[in-house]
């Protein structure tokens, strides 16, 4: 009989585990390293430095407009690796499955992961599955660890923001947060909001090619949103940051949803957007390069790094007033990634 749900025995390490691995995981994750079914993946030693990042995904709901927990687990980790300037090449994937998870749901998720990895040009080289009894987890949690090669000479990090640098944002903010919140609360909008979940390594590539060592910081504003990322950069670099509210692109539907639900788009999660802090002389070039890429077509310069108000982020409001932008406190929206 074909199992239509995950059973505890699928995680036992016995025959059922093997069946799940072969019929589902290996069918979609057909990487040569994985197909060997050894306890580890063996890869060639890459030249130069490597960047490693790990993240665990618990998003609720597991399916949302524009993606699911599987595609998100690939995009999120690929992006974390890519923000160092590294080219991601491999991922590991660890699954914690709750007993009773519909097999079809798992398959949809695994298919999305495989597709997302293929699109990003990243191999899934090793994977693991555990099954826990009902109630010990919520349907499915996924951990991914990403590996990337970092070209010599690149030095990108929050501490490198310098007064005079320009702040580039690759597109609209808040799409993922609103997509997840509306799916969770069962709220429908006349214009549906779709998550922006996407791998940014391609966009990073074109930016680095055009702006090179003029790129000082790259961040993907996920949990805590744009505001939190900018606060972190101000904190790490000790410089001040000034942004213009009117320059920050927010979709009409996201704006409306924020008013309705009491969210601030500056703090909402994004899963396919990046912020780049670049030196002034390469800002226009970098912006143009970002706009040439599909994921950066709405890219804008939203502000600059300044020697005023060190360590703080200040927003010039649409009205022309000025106010502080602080980090997110508490959980505006738990379990969004």
């Amino acid at each position: 009989m074909k199992d239509d749900r995950i059973l505890l025995s699928h995680g036992s390490g016995g025959k059922k585990s093997r069946e799940l691995t072969e019929r589902l995981f290996l069918k979609h994750f057909d990487d040569p390293a994985l197909l060997l079914l050894n306890d580890q993946a063996v890869m060639e030693r890459p030249g130069g430095r490597i960047a490693v990042s790990t993240d665990t995904y618990t998003v609720d709901p597991i399916f949302f407009p524009g993606g699911n927990i599987g595609s998100l687990a690939v995009h999120g980790t690929v992006n974390d690796v890519a923000m160092s300037g590294a080219e991601p090449f491999a991922l590991s994937a660890g699954f914690i499955l709750e007993e009773g998870l519909p097999m079809d749901d798992l398959e949809r998720i695994v298919v999305s992961m495989a597709e997302a990895a293929r699109e990003a040009g990243v191999r899934i080289v090793t994977a693991d599955t555990k099954v826990v009894s009902r109630g010990a987890a919520d349907r499915i949690f996924i951990n991914t660890t990403g590996f990337g090669v970092l070209e010599d000479g690149l030095d990108i990090g929050g501490q490198r923001a310098l007064p005079g640098d320009r702040i580039l944002l690759s597109g609209t903010v808040g799409d993922h947060g609103v997509a997840v919140a509306s799916a969770r609360e069962g709220i429908r909008f006349s214009t549906p909001v779709v998550s922006d979940s996407a791998s940014l390594n391609g966009l990073v590539g074109v930016l680095l090619k055009s702006a090179g060592s003029g790129v000082h910081v790259m961040r993907d504003p996920t949990r805590g949103g744009l505001a939190t990322v900018l606060c972190e950069v101000a904190d790490q670099s000790g410089a001040g940051i000034e942004i213009r509210e009117e320059a920050i692109p927010v979709r009409e539907a996201v704006k409306g949803a924020c008013e309705l639900l009491g969210y601030d788009p500056l703090y909402l999660a994004n899963e396919g957007k990046m912020v780049a802090v670049v030196s002034r002389d390469v800002a226009d070039r970098g912006l143009e390069a970002m706009r040439s890429h599909p994921l950066g077509k709405d890219a804008v310069i939203i502000g600059e790094v300044t020697s005023d108000h060190p360590g703080r982020v200040v927003l010039r409001t649409v009205l022309g007033g000025r106010r502080l932008v602080d980090r997110l406190t508490g959980d505006m929206l738990p379990r969004i990634c």
Binding site: L315, R316, T317, V318, L319, G320, G321, R322, R323
Partner: peptide, 9 residues
């Protein structure tokens, strides 16, 4: 009032 920066105006 704070969010819109009205105080500073």
């Amino acid at each position: 009032i704070f969010r819109s920066g009205i105080k500073s105006l």
